[in-house]
């Protein structure tokens, strides 16, 4: 096999999992919402992993990028639905989502990424809450009442298409975004960027004297991660729910969930966030069913055990075990 082809082998298990999720959703009645939730967590894990996993920096303001993506979609459909764009309005929403998430990432990153790990984490906590209060306080973008755009969606596309967009294409798009995130992650890990990020994650000062512009590479990871989050927010929250409501969109618990998924699966790995997203999603669903209200109480100790027992995450451990076996090239 050529080197070029082997490079892409680690994508196989990731895409296989996504295919199975899609087939189950399509084929088994009543499974669509659960599968959509799993795909959402996988996608968030992958987007988050590109920054948290690959740089080792924790961004507590992560959900702000999802929220801005949601607003991007909401603003596009709410304000521009009369333009004769057709489905293009959704594409405009995606574009706006990415632009807004990237702009915020550039603003926050250019300042906060010059700080060391712990200071960065603290600085980012404020971003999330600050942005929410900015929207609520200045009453921009609907203020604390948010934006409901289901009517605009109906007016533009008619009941059938609007329904199809919200209940089918929104979820499928998240799957596509997740697949895209995996491709980007692989490209980063295997390329020069991956080496720079590995070095700065392990020892930032050593990385600097070895010629790595650490701020630049952190910013690359941060902006990429934010752009993907914006896309996910636009689809999984915006187009799917057809409303955006600040306390929900800026709910910090999604950031915490993202951290859990990445740590559980294996930070900085390709397959890790997918495995983490699946396990977290399933466990959350199951605990919600059997012990509603207690899911966090039960989940916290499980996470602690996993993080202590497998500090490199499930996939990190798996990679160690598979060294030298024929499966090695498939797990990254």
């Amino acid at each position: 096999m050529t080197r070029g082809a082997t490079k892409y082998l680690p994508l196989l298990p990731v895409y296989l999992i996504y295919l199975v999720l899609f087939l189950v959703a399509e084929g088994m009645p009543g499974m669509w919402q659960l599968m959509a939730m799993l795909v959402f967590y996988c996608a968030v894990g992958q987007a988050f992993n590109i920054f948290l996993g690959m740089t080792g920096y924790v961004n507590f303001g992560y959900v702000a990028f999802l929220a801005l993506g949601t607003y991007g979609m909401a603003l596009s459909i709410y304000h521009f639905h009369q333009l004769p764009l057709g489905v293009g309005i959704v594409l405009l929403g995606l574009l706006l989502a990415v632009v807004m998430a990237v702009l915020l990432a550039l603003m926050v990153g250019a300042v906060a990424l010059r700080l060391g790990g712990a200071y960065f984490a603290i600085a980012t906590i404020g971003v999330n809450e600050g942005f929410r209060y900015l929207i609520e306080g200045t009453k921009i973008w609907g203020g604390s009442e948010g934006i409901i755009f289901s009517k605009q969606l109906l007016d533009t596309f008619g009941r059938e298409v609007a329904n199809k967009l919200s209940t089918f294409w929104a979820d499928v798009s998240v799957l596509i975004i997740a697949a895209l995130a995996a491709l980007i992650t692989l490209h980063f890990i295997r390329g020069k960027t991956g080496y720079a990020l590995m070095a700065l994650r392990e020892d930032e000062e050593a990385a600097k004297v070895m010629g790595i512009n650490v701020t630049k590479y952190k910013l690359i990871a941060f902006v990429t991660s934010a752009a993907l989050a914006g896309l996910i927010g636009a689809m999984a929250w915006g187009l799917k729910l057809t409303y955006v409501f600040p306390p929900e969109a800026f709910d910090i618990s999604y950031t915490v969930e993202g951290i859990i998924i990445v740590m559980l699966g294996g930070a900085g790995t390709l397959l890790g966030p997918v495995v983490g997203g699946l396990l977290y999603g399933l466990a959350k669903y199951w605990l919600t069913v059997i012990l509603p209200g207690f899911q966090l109480l039960i989940f916290a100790p499980i996470i602690i055990v996993v993080v202590v027992a497998f500090p490199e995450g499930i996939v990190g451990m798996l990679r160690q075990r598979l060294k030298g076996t024929p499966f090695e090239p498939f797990v990254l």
């Binding site: 590995m198 790595i212 490199e312």
Partner: peptide, 27 residues
């Protein structure tokens, strides 16, 4: 100060990638 989780080869490759040859050579 090795990049501990990376292999020896990857460590040394970082030097080649980002030293005076940076921008001129690939992985």
């Amino acid at each position: 100060r090795p990049f501990g989780s990376a292999t020896v080869r990857e460590n040394v490759a970082v030097g080649a990638l980002f030293g005076t040859l940076h921008g001129q050579i690939g992985v």
